[in-house]
Design a protein around this nucleic acid. Sequence first.
DNA 1: TATGAATGAGTCTTCATTCAT
DNA 2: TATGAATGAAGACTCATTCAT
Lengths: 202, 202, 202, 202
Amino acid sequence: MGVLLRRLIDEGCVSDPESPKGRLLAAAARQFRQKGFSRTTVRDLAAEVGILSGSIFHHFKNKDEILFAVMNEVVIAMEERLQVRLSAATSTRDKVRALIENELQFIHGPTGDATAVLIYEWRALSEPLQQKILERRRAYFKLWHDTLIKAEEEALITVEPDCLRQLLHGAIVWSIHWYQPQGPMPLESLVDQVLSLAIKSE
Amino acid sequence: MGVLLRRLIDEGCVSDPESPKGRLLAAAARQFRQKGFSRTTVRDLAAEVGILSGSIFHHFKNKDEILFAVMNEVVIAMEERLQVRLSAATSTRDKVRALIENELQFIHGPTGDATAVLIYEWRALSEPLQQKILERRRAYFKLWHDTLIKAEEEALITVEPDCLRQLLHGAIVWSIHWYQPQGPMPLESLVDQVLSLAIKSE
Amino acid sequence: MGVLLRRLIDEGCVSDPESPKGRLLAAAARQFRQKGFSRTTVRDLAAEVGILSGSIFHHFKNKDEILFAVMNEVVIAMEERLQVRLSAATSTRDKVRALIENELQFIHGPTGDATAVLIYEWRALSEPLQQKILERRRAYFKLWHDTLIKAEEEALITVEPDCLRQLLHGAIVWSIHWYQPQGPMPLESLVDQVLSLAIKSE
Amino acid sequence: MGVLLRRLIDEGCVSDPESPKGRLLAAAARQFRQKGFSRTTVRDLAAEVGILSGSIFHHFKNKDEILFAVMNEVVIAMEERLQVRLSAATSTRDKVRALIENELQFIHGPTGDATAVLIYEWRALSEPLQQKILERRRAYFKLWHDTLIKAEEEALITVEPDCLRQLLHGAIVWSIHWYQPQGPMPLESLVDQVLSLAIKSE
DNA sequence: TATGAATGAGTCTTCATTCAT
DNA sequence: TATGAATGAAGACTCATTCAT
């Protein structure tokens, strides 16, 4: 368990994956991703962690809150992580690379299920909870925005920053459907390919 | 009504949008996109067309078949249309542009709802019907593949063709979530931006 | 077509089996027997005679009336036929044999479907129509009763007539489930076996 | 509660008639008998037991399983009981009497509803479940067969054993429709009448 | 906290019946 | 008479949620 995760758990932002709540969230992420939120029943979730459906409501007020929790954890982690990576990057080019790498790692790493749910089950979340996630999400988008603005100033990119952000985001997110982390192409290579779309290698 | 559409209707590939069946499909596309397949009830659909829920099953065997029909219409039209565009394009560069333009027009034009459903409600379709759509979809992907192979041969692109196809597809598809056709940026401009990701302007 | 049937048709008691109505009744008898009344849809019936479900209601007021018609035809024919047979029989023993033979022939002959429906779909018929059938049925039971009374007077039977009637009727009716007319045992032989239950051969 | 029933409950073969499941089965037997399986709604059943229709599916997977459970209980009990009776009977004549008495008691005793359902709602049961019942039913038929074979060897009966079995079974089963246990004729008397059909009193 | 029986609103689907053409 | 689209009531079944134990 990394030090970042440790801290997030201690702060109550994410659940200990060993706890019943944490195991429930992992199961939820996996099943929501695979079948979609509305085709996943609380019974399905309960079965996976070995409890009965009624017991779920001791951990979450309702099914909606489970979806929210899944999304919330990943939203927080994603932004925290990106901040760390951006600080570590020296050049603006490396910062752009960090944007891409961070997102691809969340999608294809251990948090992949939750990330996919965040992206594809958005509409399933009730309006008020959507707002809460969106609030958190803004900080993340800001990091993208600021970085790409800098890249534009340095003439690294030609496409308008916000448009580019969306295009890259789309290209990255879609990799859920075709990219195989244990296939022939290593993730770093995919990062480079996406980067090459944004920034012309000299 | 265009001549292509006219022909598709006559061939029975798509439904006349004036017929009850056609109006049902339009409503389905709209609602499936907005709320998702499983959160859309047959009552919702019937209400929009002004019939009772039971009457729906006069036109479709079950809810699944409605989803299938929505997807099927757009899959067929999308490929037919792309074929026409590719034939019209002279240079390989123009052909690549046609790939992008065709998809963006389907997403942001009058068939936008059905196209979004095709992309985002895939998992909601039953396995056997998925196969039938996939069969038809292959021809479309082949057109992309062949065109990008040619582009690679002419050194227009640097990223490996199939990888590039997926990246572009993702970037294009994601525009569902942010691009506004009646906003400040015309669609042609968006086409160019995406094209610029793929092909370095000299 | 026999002379009896001819007369019944002319009198409007049964339908001409060539007419749409007659073909509908034959289909109904067959399907009601096979699947039961409530598991047979009017669509099923319409399909078998090659019309659409709506058209059925030009021939019958409702589904109930179809069941009634099936039962009514066979009830009338059964009694008419029995009367003829009883008149032909000379000895009381032959008359008892006629009771048994008549019922077995209706069950295993061309009217088998309708007869089975009469027996096994009784509860499916609405109360008022049940009464109408019962009215007709009484004459038939009377023939059994009178004959068995005579048999008792002649000391041919030992069991109380009405009780015997029910026991024989049950034994005969159940043959629907096991007796094969084209099997090794000819129907006449079955008649004799049943008769031997009722009347001790000296 | 008899010792046999007690054991069947403990073995899980039949449900405790006090339990919700047991009360549901009793209601089902009664209603399936009275109205037939397909004309009985799960709401009807739930209402009789004082729960809501949705709650039924806590106890049974679907409506079919209820019908199966009703039939299964009686099939098991019927065979167990017959075995006990046959063991107790000393002469072959008494064994034949036991066959008849056992069946008549199941039909007109407290298990009458379930027995009637077993006999008259056979077609309503789905094919795979029919097979499961049939499997259990075979042992019961075997007891009849073996006993009647013995009776034939001792020249007690004249009709071929399997044919006689069906004829008697039919006569017995039909008593559902006319015999009144609390009428003038005691059940033992009915048993004797049926026996007299099979075996000539010397 | 966990259980599991019960709830009750809601879902898809069926089907006899109607009726304008 | 036949059609076939539409009706609308009713059916089986699902499932998030509650709550006494």
